[in-house]
Design a protein around this nucleic acid. Structure first.
Length: 468
RNA sequence: GCUCGUGUAGUGUAGUUCGGUCCAUCAUGACGGACUCUCGAUCCGUCGACCCGGGUUCAAAUCCCGGCACGAGCACCA
């Protein structure tokens, strides 16, 4: 069993791409087959490949699946093979060179009528093929195209004499102007799938007609087309377009800070916010292979992520909009140190160690939590006044609300970036002293999961809010 | 318009091939409760669906016919 995932390397992956990665790689894994990562980089003009994207996509593939693809194929490196097949197809009269304009051809095609080029001799088309490839031949972009000869009475007009290659004089970032005529997806993919021995294709249903076009070519060549399955369109309520080129435009305009801007539906953004690859995988596997068009909520993806990260994420106390109170203690804490578990249910994660709170210490509480009677989490029941917090007893004596808090002398300023209505809000507060590495996911008690994304010059940690 | 495809609870999903074991699965969500030194996690409960109309049949989510709705393709993009 051989499958492939074939993105256009015109930018890094979006959440949409990850469906193809997950479905194809899991299919291969379940059947002990292979999965190919193939770069379909044959459009130099409308979707110019980004040199960085080849490497980025390969790394993202590995991050999502947890392993490298079995093979990596790049279309632009395989051009000689495709071009060799074209000449065969022209000589065998499976293909011909058409010089009609797109509009002229469409009119003829819609009327099931052949275009004037179609009836020319194969030798004439071979000559035309040479002219297409010749920079001095006089033909420019759009002047000629290679078409696959089909039955013009096919009910689906999209399939009739479909275009297979066109002239593109825009240089390719990987191979420059080595080639003048480039295959379109339907041709390149058809030939490459056969060369790679692909047995199963799983892709979006927008490519259904592509399957039908390619099948026509396979039939003429006596090849067997891979088994093909489709998935439907996906929308995530919280996101707009998944279009790579649209995101690129917005990033270049400064609307977003980069491909990993937390507001974008890119894998880079999901990864930097703290999503686990297991969550991306289980989310897509849950969607399965239905052709239905679906609209899902981020809540669904978040619930997968909670399951993936909850048990291994350490807890910390972060007080937003802090107000201070002076501790008044009649009794001293019975130990020299003050330990709080890093995880409520997982003792093996150890504990955070704070200095033992003592009479006169300043503590910080979240303004919105203030109330006459509170339970300071893990510490004591307390009675609050405008400037003090009097400890009543260390053991929990009633059901008053439990709040998180920090010691003023064992905490530092911190910032959480939260996306609200597609804007990034900076929420400031104090986090308990801790030693967290950039990229680490934590759970801020009573707030939610967040990932440390940077540390400012003055030492202030900056977190990206993940979800609750 | 032409071609192709899809319609199961708020959102996803199983079941549709080979009609009965489906008064329809699971997850998520909402609501209520238990437990917990987090508004997290865990546990319990409740809510809620077979697009519509005919037909075949003892029996239809499942088969047939006809509608309707939604989506995709009809690019010298992928």
């Amino acid at each position: 069993m051989v499958l492939r995932f074939a993105p256009n390397p015109n930018g890094p992956m979006s959440l949409g791409h990850s469906r193809g990665v997950v479905i194809n790689s899991e299919f291969a894994r379940m059947h002990e087959g292979e999965v190919i990562l193939r770069f379909d980089d044959t459009d130099t003009k409308r979707k110019p490949p980004s040199i960085k994207a080849y490497d980025t996509i390969a790394k993202e593939f590995e991050w999502i699946t947890g392993r490298a693809p079995d093979r990596i194929v790049t279309a632009s490196e395989r051009m000689p093979l495709y071009l060799a097949h074209v000449i065969e197809d022209i000589e065998a009269e499976r293909a011909y060179v058409c010089t009609c304009t797109a509009a002229e051809f469409k009119d003829l095609r819609d009327g099931k009528a052949p275009c004037p080029c179609r009836s020319l001799a194969a030798t004439e088309h071979v000559e035309r093929w040479g002219k297409m490839n010749d920079p001095k031949g006089g033909w420019q972009d759009g002047d000629a195209v290679v078409r696959i000869r089909t039955d013009l009475n096919l009910p689906n007009p999209a399939l009739r004499d479909w275009p297979a290659l066109r002239i593109q004089t825009t240089p390719h970032p990987m191979v420059g102007d080595t080639y003048r005529v480039w295959p379109l997806l339907d041709y390149q993919s058809a030939i490459e799938d056969h060369l790679q021995g692909v047995t199963h294709i799983v892709r979006g249903k927008d490519l259904m007609d592509s399957t039908r076009k390619q099948t026509l070519l396979y039939e003429m060549r006596g090849w067997t087309y891979p088994h093909t399955l489709y998935w439907g369109r996906v929308k995530v309520h919280e996101f707009g377009s998944f279009s790579t080129s649209a995101m690129r435009t917005d990033i270049e305009a400064g609307t977003y800070s980069g491909w990993d801007d937390p507001r974008l539906p890119t894998i880079a953004a999901f990864r930097s916010k703290g999503y686990a690859p297991e969550a991306i995988r289980s989310f897509w596997l849950e969607q399965g292979l239905t052709q239905k068009d679906i609209a899902v909520s981020m809540k669904t993806i978040e619930s997968h992520n909670v399951k993936a990260i909850e048990s291994s994420t350490p807890r910390y106390s972060f007080v937003q909009d802090p107000v201070s109170r002076r501790l008044e203690m009649n009794e001293t804490w019975p130990s020299n140190c003050f330990n709080i578990p890093s995880h409520p249910d997982n003792a093996s994660m150890g504990h955070r160690q704070w200095p033992a709170p003592k009479n006169g210490d300043l503590i910080l509480l979240q303004a919105s939590d203030l109330s006459a009677n509170l339970r300071l989490k893990e510490f004591a029941d307390a009675t609050l006044t405008d400037n003090s917090a009097t400890v009543e007893n260390f053991d929990r004596s009633d059901r008053r609300q439990i709040v998180h808090w920090v010691l003023e002398n064992h905490s530092k300023n911190a910032v959480i970036l939260v996306v609200v209505d597609n804007k990034i809000e900076h929420r400031t507060g104090r986090i308990e002293n801790c030693d967290i590495e950039i990229g680490q996911v934590v759970q801020l008690e009573r707030i939610g999961f967040a990932t440390l994304t940077q540390i400012l010059e003055d030492g202030t940690p900056v977190f990206a809010y993940l979800h609750d």
